[in-house]
Simulated scan of single mutants.
Amino acid sequence: MLWNEPNNLSHWDFDADPGWRRFSEMVRLAGAAVRAERPGLTRVLGGTSPIDAGFLRLVESQGALAEVDAVAVHGFPLDWNHWQIQEWPARLAEITAAVRLPVWVSEVGVSSFGAEEVQEWGLRRTAELLLGRAPRIHWYSLFDLPRAWPATTRHREAEGSSYYRHFYMGLIREDGTPKPALAAFPALAPGLGICQWFHFEDPRLDAGVRWLKDLGVRHLRTGLSWADSFRPGWEAWFDRQMRALEPFEVTVTFCFTPEHRGLKPHHTSPPREPEEYADFCARMVRRYA
């Protein structure tokens, strides 16, 4: 998967890239580089959030879809989106009509911020609405985000309750205990996969693998950070993570600009040289695919 939420300022600084022209070039180069390394490997444009057919038509006109095999969307109608959960089929149909490519749901979830019973209901209703309608569906997420870690959002605490919902998206609480929705998940797998981001040297990796196996998960989405590839010990961590995830069909998201390689010193910045991102994607495919 090439990038993540490119139409969201939390993941791509489109003020520094008006019209997403740099983004479109970067994705086209990265997709071609992946194809050269591993012909036939499915290449997916990073999931959009919000779901926006107009955005996909724009980047398609600039060549961004020339080297991908599918597009993806993210939806959280019970937490952040301004539409209702029963609209999911219509949202998918809108994107399919716009780009005529398979449409993955690479993140869908419900927080337990208000009540854990709401999350359980949302999981079941999401499955009713989406299973059979998309080639891949990844529930976000397995674990709650630890409160000591920052959520990757635009304005953090200034977002009010919207920010704090990020910390309650998991099926498992920060203390390792299961929420009610967890018991409902095995009946929905393997049709429903999981999206779980593992941070650099994440202490939850081994426990995560055990839980995923117990739940019957086949499809897992996670990420390898381009920015992390400049940390000391990155090779050992990447190798350990990918080795631990070998039992699953893994969608790996390549994302996050190294600060010293961006137009701005920030992980959301367009890179100075888009070929460097393409090279990172090729190297990771060569190493792990």
Rank of each mutant, 00 (worst) to 15 (best):
P102Q: 10
E275P: 08
R22N: 05
L129F: 10
S225G: 08
E60G: 01
L142T: 06
Y277G: 01
N81I: 00
S225Q: 04
K213F: 03
L56G: 01
P39F: 07
A30K: 02
F185D: 09
E117K: 13
T153H: 04
L245Q: 09
P274R: 07
A244K: 06
R38L: 08
R231P: 00
T152L: 15
K179D: 03
W234K: 02
L56C: 09
E107S: 12
G193Q: 12
C281T: 03
Y168C: 12
F76V: 01
R218Q: 14
A289K: 07
E276M: 04
R125Q: 08
S225E: 14
K213N: 10
A289W: 13
L220T: 06
A64P: 02
L263D: 02
A32N: 09
H199C: 14
G193L: 06
G31R: 04
L9Y: 11
V59S: 09
L129P: 02
G75C: 08
D279Q: 15
L78G: 03
P150M: 06
V209L: 13
P178K: 06
R35D: 13
G191R: 15
L45C: 05
L263V: 14
F280N: 01
I51K: 08
L130W: 01
R243K: 14
E5F: 10
E259G: 08
R136N: 03
W83H: 07
T222Q: 02
G208P: 03
F280P: 02
G233F: 07
L192Y: 09
R28I: 00
E159M: 00
F280Y: 14
Y164V: 00
V73R: 01
M1R: 14
V105C: 01
V285Q: 04
R231Q: 13
L129V: 05
T257P: 07
N8E: 05
T177H: 11
W88C: 04
F143S: 08
V44C: 11
R173W: 10
F280D: 02
W121L: 09
V285L: 07
I85H: 06
A36E: 13
L56A: 05
D15E: 15
L45D: 01
N8P: 09
P146M: 11
R218M: 08
D206W: 06
A93W: 00
T42H: 15
L171H: 04
V217F: 09
R240G: 10
G208L: 11
A134I: 09
P18E: 11
S141P: 09
G216K: 07
F143M: 04
D202S: 13
G132V: 12
L92I: 10
F200M: 10
D206T: 12
E67I: 01
P203S: 13
E259M: 13
H260W: 02
A70N: 05
K179Y: 05
G160D: 00
A90L: 13
A53G: 11
Q119G: 04
K179G: 06
D175K: 10
V71H: 03
W80I: 00
R100D: 11
R22P: 01
I137K: 04
L58A: 06
L65S: 00
G193E: 03
G223I: 00
R35A: 14
W139N: 07
A70I: 03
P6N: 08
G193D: 06
D206S: 13
W80V: 00
H266R: 14
A93M: 01
E37G: 07
L9Q: 12
P232N: 06
A183I: 05
W149N: 09
E276W: 11
R38M: 07
A70W: 02
W20D: 05
L58M: 10
